[in-house]
Amino acid sequence: MAFRRRTKSYPLFSQEFVIHNHADIGFCLVLCVLIGLMFEVTAKTAFLFILPQYNISVPTADSETVHYHYGPKDLVTILFYIFITIILHAVVQEYVLDKISKRLHLSKVKHSKFNESGQLVVFHFTSVIWCFYVVVTEGYLTNPRSLWEDYPHVHLPFQVKFFYLCQLAYWLHALPELYFQKVRKEEIPRQLQYICLYLVPWSQPDFLYSTEFLFHTARLFYFADENNEKLFSAWAAVFGVTRLFILTLAVLAIGFGLARMENQAFDPEKGNFNTLFCRLCVLLLVCAAQAWLMWRFIHSQLRHWREYWNEQSAKRRVPATPRLPARLIKRESGYHENGVVKAENGTSPRTKKLKSP
């Protein structure tokens, strides 16, 4: 399967060969795992790559439910879905973004940001739908107390664990993509900041994905037409509300919910970190992250408004160019008819006789 049509060939396993064929290499590795499912000898190993591990049957009032623990085998599953994400990244880039960017004729800087926002729009849109499905099916929306009840939450439902495994796979795949996409050195620190932020599990609530989806959608419309800035105003309003909602939820779940739990002993083997010191550290980290994001948002908005008003004031200072008076053209008395000058009484003017030499 070739994701890109290439007219130039590169030496096998060279740097340029890996960059231009990394999606094809990942597809071959995924195909080998899928073929392993067909044989009984390799099926158990293949399932180790595809499905979450450490399943435990938990008895309930009606029947038994299967929950999942975490362990080192999850790294193998994350690695498999990193290759899946690399393949999907190449498909979106080749068959959607490249075709749109050719019509827009963007500069190199705008082209790089367009590709970045295009990939993140697809990811955030998928995450919003998946998050909403998990929140509804697992009862987090109807029973918010389940966020801190039965702590520690070391046994997760299938949808919750699989969601986090895929999230980790996506943001870990973004690190080698900085190399594969040949991102400019000036852009790497900024992208590393939000990649590391999303690798922290508590920074990935549903409404944060919806906010980022709105921002990158607004940026795509802006690249298509620079007059489309209405979505940025909507994103600015939602951004502040999102920061406030995250802080409220963190204080409610960590500051009040976990503080009232009876089991408040420090036991890393059982996954219990419900102590006053740990709760304060987590709350400080959440508040610091939200304050940093809000400060960057306010700083960018002030800079945008300052540039806008400077541009408007510069337009007012430019004096209007004086209009030159119409040039007077001296015409002969009479009028023209068929290219011949006629006198006012209708007769042709008398021509002067030339003196003979």
Rank of each mutant, 00 (worst) to 15 (best):
K330R: 08
A314D: 15
G36L: 08
F80M: 07
I298T: 12
Y95P: 01
Y209F: 08
P268W: 14
D62S: 14
V183K: 14
L199W: 02
G26F: 06
A326L: 11
I82W: 04
I188N: 10
A291H: 03
Q301F: 14
F277A: 15
P52H: 13
L48I: 01
R190E: 09
G139Q: 03
G26V: 02
F277W: 05
A23Y: 01
T45F: 05
K352R: 15
V251Q: 12
E177K: 07
E229C: 10
G334I: 05
F180K: 13
P176Y: 00
E94H: 11
E149P: 00
T351F: 12
D98E: 10
Y170A: 01
Q204A: 13
A218G: 13
Q264D: 13
Q193D: 05
H22R: 09
K108Y: 04
N338A: 15
G36C: 14
G346V: 05
I56K: 06
K342T: 02
K113R: 13
E229R: 12
E138D: 13
R190F: 13
L12C: 06
H69I: 00
E186D: 12
H22E: 06
S112A: 14
V286L: 14
F245S: 05
V341Y: 08
G118F: 01
S348H: 06
N21H: 10
M38Q: 07
G71Q: 08
S210E: 05
H69S: 09
R103T: 01
A224H: 09
A234N: 02
L244I: 10
Q301R: 08
N274I: 06
G334L: 13
N310Q: 14
L247Y: 02
F207A: 02
S356T: 12
L284H: 03
F83C: 09
A224C: 10
A236R: 14
C278T: 10
L29M: 08
R296Q: 11
D98Q: 07
E344W: 06
R145D: 10
I86H: 13
F125A: 15
A90Y: 01
R260A: 06
E229H: 04
V341K: 10
L231C: 06
W292P: 00
A61K: 10
F221D: 02
L354N: 12
S117C: 15
V58L: 14
I298G: 12
V33E: 09
K342G: 00
D98S: 11
E177F: 02
Y10C: 01
V154H: 00
R5K: 05
C28G: 08
Q290S: 05
G255T: 04
I254G: 00
F49W: 05
G36N: 09
E337F: 05
L12I: 09
D98Y: 05
D267W: 11
L106Y: 10
K355M: 14
M261N: 04
E94G: 04
V160I: 13
L231E: 06
R145H: 05
L284I: 06
I25V: 12
L276N: 09
E212L: 15
A46N: 05
A234Y: 09
F223C: 13
I82A: 04
P357R: 14
Q167A: 01
E229K: 08
V109S: 15
E344Q: 09
F163D: 03
S127E: 00
H216Y: 12
N55Y: 03
M261K: 07
F207N: 07
L34C: 09
Q53Y: 10
R184Y: 04
K353Y: 07
K355A: 15
S333Y: 03
L192R: 08
S63V: 02
P319Y: 15
T351C: 10
